[in-house]
């Protein structure tokens, strides 16, 4: 085995070990989980919907930074991807329902990304007051980061695997996050002689859990294109994607059934990606912007082929 391959394998092994250490065994109920339990199946929807939208967009980002795939031969690559979805102002508040019979029947209050929860007085009996919880996450970009492994090539195809478990953060305010994903892509340009661009098509599946309450599943298909100019790589693509967030917990709201089991659909369905990368031997540096219902940015470094 070549010394460079040895170096790369040692590096990948180190990353796997460090990732394993990062896996948290924390299972205590976090502030987020306890906050959600104050909502019933109907009222939680608006509070948490931005999470479905933003996580949904995050987990499909950063899968490729080059559409070139070798026709055959073993190749290994390791990437660290950081992605972030832009939190829009409209995602910081929502129109919530007041309890049954309350007047007014709705009020505007903070989502999980909002500021202070709104308090509202009943207009018929002013002594009666109801309030929504404050926002928990204060950010303009909702980030995620994940390491991924690329393995190829067989018949012009490669495999991408990603996994990470992030411990509870913010003094146990936000629960353990576990993400895994798998993707397969196939070179299209190998069938087109003298094609000026590298072309590929990919299929991806992602699973993402946040604590014991939230379970995301996502699916994406995309068409990728890239052009290498010396060390510079220009890449982009279009994608169709869907994501769903299942939320399961026992509500403490006495005005509604305790069992909550709902599924929210992420807002992002189509994604247009433009990106640029540098290929510096085994080191790759890349960044891209993704446009759709949710605007998302991703960037990273890669090692290997």
């Amino acid at each position: 085995m070549k010394p460079s391959h040895n170096r790369m394998l040692r590096t990948v092994a180190l990353c796997v070990i460090v990732c394993a250490f990062a896996i948290s065994l924390a299972s205590a109920q976090t502030e987020l989980e306890k906050a959600l339990q104050q909502y019933n199946a109907e009222t939680v929807t608006g509070y948490i919907q931005p999470v479905a939208d933003l996580f949904g967009a995050d987990m499909h980002a950063g899968y490729y930074h080059n559409a070139w795939i070798a026709e055959s031969g073993f190749g290994l690559g390791f990437d660290i991807i950081v992605m972030g979805s832009v939190v829009q102002d409209a995602q910081k508040s929502y129109i919530a329902n007041t309890p049954p019979g309350f007047t007014p029947t709705t009020f505007k209050t903070a989502t999980i990304f909002g500021a202070k929860g709104t308090s509202i007085l009943n207009s018929i009996f002013p002594g009666l007051e109801y309030k929504g919880s404050d926002g928990i996450v204060n950010t303009s970009i909702f980030p995620l980061a994940v390491p991924q492994l690329r393995i190829g090539s067989l018949y012009g195809s490669d495999l991408t695997l990603r996994f990470i478990s992030i411990p509870a953060i913010g003094d146990n305010k936000f629960p353990v996050i576990t993400l895994w994903g798998v993707g397969v892509r196939h070179s299209i340009s190998q069938y087109i002689h003298e094609c000026p661009l590298d072309l590929a098509a990919g299929v991806y599946f992602n699973s993402f859990t946040v604590g014991d309450l939230m379970d995301f599943k996502g699916f994406a298909v995309n068409a990728q294109a890239s052009k290498s100019i010396k060390i510079l790589i220009l890449y982009g693509g279009i994608a169709y994607e869907s994501s769903k967030m299942n939320l399961t917990y026992k509500s403490t709201d006495p005005t509604a059934p305790a069992g909550v089991d709902i599924t929210l659909t992420g807002a992002n369905n189509f994604r247009f990606t433009v990106g640029v990368g540098l290929s510096l031997g085994i080191l790759k540096i890349f960044a891209d912007a993704n446009f759709g219902s949710v605007t998302n940015y991703s960037a990273g470094i890669g090692f290997g082929r």
Binding site: V18, G117, D134, G170
Partner: peptide, 28 residues
């Protein structure tokens, strides 16, 4: 390797600074 360990350290703590320090939960 040092760069990798550093980056993975960031992964493990991503987002810790964006959790509101004091937020009120409306508890039933």
């Amino acid at each position: 390797k040092i760069l990798l360990v550093f980056l993975l350290g960031i992964l493990a703590t991503t987002g810790s600074t964006c959790i509101n320090d004091g937020f009120l939960v409306a508890v039933n």
